[in-house]
């Protein structure tokens, strides 16, 4: 789990989890249990997903809670 390429499968797995559970609020440990993945691997990935605005984080450290950040949905764009 070094380079970004090596992290991609787990990154996509996390993204799909949050997309499938848009109302889920998860700690790293909680997500670790749900996905069956190591918490230390998930930490880096969640940090990256937060930087991409796909996931939002509330709080810091072990108690930080992550949840899905829905993309902007705009109706009525004049074309």
């Amino acid at each position: 789990m070094n380079g970004p390429q090596a992290m991609l499968p787990l990154q996509l797995e996390c993204t799909l989890y949050f997309e499938n559970n848009p109302y889920a609020y998860e700690t790293v440990d909680g997500l670790s249990v749900r996905l069956g993945r190591k918490a230390e691997d998930l930490e880096k990935i969640l940090e990256h997903l937060v930087s991409l605005n796909i996931v939002e984080v509330i709080g810091k450290g072990a108690t930080a809670i992550y949840h899905y950040n829905q993309p902007e949905l705009v109706h009525g764009v004049e074309v």
Partner: peptide
């Protein structure tokens, strides 16, 4: 209809309108 639905990450406000118009065109 002339109004479209858009889903966006990273583009906001006028940028959405401009990109939408250009792609529609």
């Amino acid at each position: 209809k002339s109004q479209a639905t858009v889903i966006s990450r990273g583009l906001h406000g006028d940028e959405i309108q401009q990109m939408g118009s250009e792609l529609a065109q």
